[in-house]
Amino acid sequence: MKISTDIGVWIGALSALGIYSVLIKDNPFYTMVEHIFVGASAGIAVVVGINTFLNSAWSPMIEGKYLLIIPILLGILLYSRYFEDIAWLNRIPLSFLMGTGAGVAMRGAVESQIVGQISATMVKLTTFDSWIIFLGTIFSLSYFFLTFQRGKVTGVTSQLGRHFMMAAFGAAFGNTVMGRISAAIGRFQFIFLKWLGLG
C-alpha cells in the first residue's frame, strides 16, 4: 500500500468519498462537496461561455462583422427581466431563441427520428429479427393512435406495442444501471488504486 502524495488525487478521492457518504445518511461532508461541485461546474460553464462569446461574436465583430452587434444587443435584452418596467423586452431575444430552436428541433426530428427510423425499418423482411423489428415498430406506433377508438385489431396491436415498449424500457433500464455501475467501478479503482495505492 502506497498512498498517493498528489494533492489533486487526494482532492478527487475525498470528493468521491464525500459524495458516496450520502449513501449512509445526508451529512455536511456531502453537502459541502456537492456545493463545491456546483460552483466549479457553473464556473466552468461560464468560462466556456465567455470564451465562446469572445471567439464567435466579439472578435469577429471587432474585425468588421458589425452585424453581430444585433445578437449581442438581443443577448443584453435578456437581462431586462431584472428591471420590472422593461422586463417585457426579454421576450424579444427569447422569441428569437425559441423560434430558431423550434425550427432546428423540427428539422432534426423529421430527419433523424422520422425519416431515418422509417427508412431503417423499411428493409427486406428476410429474417426473423427483421420481422420482429418491423412488427415491434408498427405495434408500438399503434399504441399511440389516440385520435380514434381502438377496435379489436388495434386493441391487440397496441397491447403488443406496450409489450415491445416494456422490453425496450427494461433494456434501457439495464443499460443505465450497468453504465452507472461502471462509473462507480471507475471511481472505486481511483480510490483504491490511485489514491490508496492498493494492488
Binding site: A102, I133, T137
Partner: peptide, 24 residues
C-alpha cells in the same frame, strides 16, 4: 438490444418526434 429494443424504441421515437414537431 439489437432486436426487441430497436422495435420498441423506434415506435417510441417516431411517436415522440411527431409530438415534438406538433409542439415546435
Amino acid at each position: 438490444m439489437s432486436v426487441l429494443n430497436v422495435g420498441g424504441q423506434r415506435g417510441l421515437m417516431i411517436a415522440g418526434a411527431i409530438g415534438f414537431i406538433a409542439v415546435s
